[in-house]
Amino acid sequence: MIETTVTILLLLMLGAVTIGIVRVRGLFAAVVLLGVYSFLMATLFVVLDAVDVAMTEAAVGAGVSTVFFLGALSLTDTVEAPGKRRQIMPLFVAVVTAGALLWGLSDLPEFGSPDQPIHRQGADYLVRSMPETGIANVVSAVLASYRGFDTLGETTVVFTAGMGILALLRRRRGEGKS
């Protein structure tokens, strides 16, 4: 019961921060609110028993990404121009998307119930991890042993993104010289 209550409280706080992000015009305020959002999300992940994800979200989502945003803001503008754009079409798209997704919810299992399909189907890493790898933290075992190729693919993506950033910034420096 306490877990459900804390989850609802955190979801309400996330909703409040999201309203702030949508409405605020200053980009600094929006970036800081995004950091708050990530920290709230990390707290929610702890409540949902995803401690590894919570730690990564707090370090990467709230820490590194906020630093990246602030670095980009220092090189660009910090205030959004007052919008003269029509707001009806985006609102319509958002409402239709929300409606379609909410319509599809009715078949999903109840929050926190142990007889969801996710707990009954698929490879049972919780049983296999200890005899096969000897690692008590099952998330580490799956990440490094059973799904090591996922991590290899992830490294490839990070490498490609890094190369792209270097290429963009180098071109900038070259133009500055000429």
Binding site: D52, V53, H119, Y125, V138, D150, E154, V157, V158
Partner: peptide
């Protein structure tokens, strides 16, 4: 225990997300 598989998938997604950001 909570199911560990979604945690692993999302760990990967977070790191890929910061790279694309």
């Amino acid at each position: 225990y909570a199911n560990p598989l979604p945690h692993v998938l999302i760990l990967t997604a977070i790191v890929v997300g910061i790279a694309t950001l």
